[in-house]
Every structure is written in C-alpha cells, then in structure tokens.
Simulated assay, not measured.
Amino acid sequence: MTPRVEINYCTQCRWLLRAAWMAQELLTTFETELGEVALVPGTGGVFDVRLDGELIYSRKEAGRFPESKELKQLVRDRIAPERDLGHSDRKP
C-alpha cells in the first residue's frame, strides 16, 4: 500500500490555495512514492498534515505554516529516508 497524505485546511480562513499548493509540491516531489494526497476541508483555523493517519505537522502546534522544504523533508524522512531532495534538502 502506498502512503496517503491528508492536508486538513480551514475553509473559513480561505486556505484552500495554500493546501492545494502544498499538495502539488508533494505530488511533484514524490511522484512514485505517494499514492494519494487528499485535501480535507475543516474549520477553526486548522492546517494539519497527516501521513497515513499520523499527524506530522500542525499549524496550531508550530504557530506557523510549514515551509514547502520543511514539509517535503518530513514526508521524505518517513517514506524514503535515503532519498536526496537536492536543493530542498538540509545542509550537513
């Protein structure tokens, strides 16, 4: 079974475009590794990212939105730890 990412975003805050952009970034980076990226509408300022049900990023907990690079690293570390993300990767 291939990994599934869920991006739960706040419709009241109009964060659909941000969620869609993050989904595009993940799908472009992990073309063969991810099976699905779902956009899940919510309310109350939510912007959470889950990988196979596990919360990997919460805007409320972090106090900010994730950077694209940061989210790619979080996903990579769980589904393809040996993978190099090129310019998006951490510096040693």
Rank of each mutant, 00 (worst) to 15 (best):
T28D: 14
G44A: 10
I79V: 13
Q24K: 07
V75H: 12
L17Y: 05
E67H: 05
S68G: 03
R78F: 04
P41E: 09
G53I: 04
Y9K: 06
A38P: 05
R90W: 05
V40Y: 01
N8E: 14
L39V: 11
E6H: 00
R59G: 03
D48L: 08
E33V: 07
E61F: 04
G63Y: 04
K69S: 03
L39W: 06
S58H: 04
P81K: 10
V5E: 00
P81W: 10
V5L: 09
L71C: 03
M22H: 08
R76I: 06
E25V: 15
H87V: 08
F47E: 05
I7C: 01
L27A: 07
H87T: 00
Q24E: 09
A23P: 03
S58Q: 04
Q12A: 15
L74D: 00
L17F: 05
S58K: 01
P81F: 09
E82L: 10
T11G: 10
I79L: 14
C13D: 03
C13S: 08
E82H: 13
R90I: 06
R64T: 05
Q12D: 13
P92Q: 13
P81G: 07
R4Q: 13
M1L: 07
P66H: 04
G86K: 05
A23G: 12
G53T: 03
V37T: 11
F65Y: 06
T32Q: 15
A62P: 02
L74P: 01
L26F: 02
C10K: 06
P41Q: 13
R78C: 07
E36P: 00
T29C: 15
Q12S: 15
E31G: 13
R14E: 06
F47W: 13
T2G: 01
I7K: 02
K69Y: 01
